[in-house]
């Protein structure tokens, strides 16, 4: 948790503290080694400061991931809640749709979208969010079904609470823990997809950067300059580890 906060904080404010902008090229220091003067962690193959790029990249990646996860959260919770509450035929139909969508090679549809409509960060995270809501919808529906059987929901009905009140005041608050847990678990997925797209050259566009792009660049010449892979790699792996751990902990605590 602390590590997470530290990474997010540094990524937000860090770029202000560094002399180099993420896209500025230092012609005097192409492929500089770490700890060279002026570039604490060295530069990449065209002389851009790695530390600055990593910080900005982290920010972009986190931003995309958070936005996509939020899209997934909203769509997933709404869909799952409606299906779980209505039950019966409506539930059956809505879950069939989710099943069907699950069977789609969505990665490829996203790639298609990117190719067709050009690349934009907006599209990246809308696309990803639309893939990731499926799991959220399934989980939320399952929880709704479990909650609906709880006597306190029946008691609320007997107390005269209309369905909207029951959903808003009893069910959604009891769902929140699980939803947040899956939100956290969605973020690593999104980060992976983002980096995958970046690898294909379909992610955010140069000179903008992201963790995925940095790792791809680093991986490209890792025999020459392993440090260029190391920093973004370490940031990404730490980020994902923390998010996964935290998400799993929350999930185990709140799942009914």
């Amino acid at each position: 948790m602390l590590v997470l906060a530290a990474i997010a904080f540094t990524a937000l404010l860090g770029p202000l503290a560094i002399d180099w902008r993420y896209d500025a090229i230092d012609w005097n220091a192409v492929h500089a080694a770490p700890f060279s003067p002026g570039h604490l962690l060295g530069t990449d193959s065209v002389g851009r400061d790695l530390l600055a790029r990593t910080l900005v990249g982290t920010r972009v990646t986190l931003g995309v991931a958070a936005a996509a996860a939020l899209v997934a959260l909203v769509v997933g919770v709404a869909w799952g809640a409606v299906a779980g509450w209505c039950g019966g035929r409506i539930d059956e139909a809505m879950m069939r749709i989710v099943d069907a969508l699950y069977a789609l090679p969505f990665m490829f549809v996203v790639i298609l979208l990117m190719v067709v409509f050009g690349r934009s960060i907006l599209l990246v995270f809308i696309g990803i969010g639309l893939v990731e809501w499926l799991t959220m919808a399934r989980v939320v529906r399952g929880q709704m079904l479990a909650l609906r059987e709880r006597p306190f929901v029946t008691a609320a009905e007997a107390a005269g609470a209309p369905p909207v009140t029951i959903i808003l005041r009893h069910m959604l608050p009891n769902l929140a823990g699980v939803a947040i847990a899956y939100l956290l678990l969605t973020i690593p997925q999104v980060v992976m997809i983002e980096s995958f797209l970046s690898f294909l050259g379909l992610g955010v566009q140069e000179p903008m950067t992201s963790l995925g792009i940095l790792i791809k660049d680093g991986a490209d010449d890792m025999d020459m300059a392993p440090h260029a892979l190391l920093l973004p790699g370490v940031v990404m792996v730490t980020l994902l580890l923390c998010l996964t751990r935290l998400g799993e902990k929350l999930r185990d605590r709140f799942t009914l």
């Binding site: 709880r150 006597p151 306190f152 029946t154 008691a155 609320a156 007997a158 107390a159 005269g160 009891n174």
Partner: peptide, 16 residues
Amino acid sequence: RAGLQPVFQDPVASLD
């Protein structure tokens, strides 16, 4: 609803 109120078996599960 007001005239008829239930009490269920599992006391803990019947409270939010």
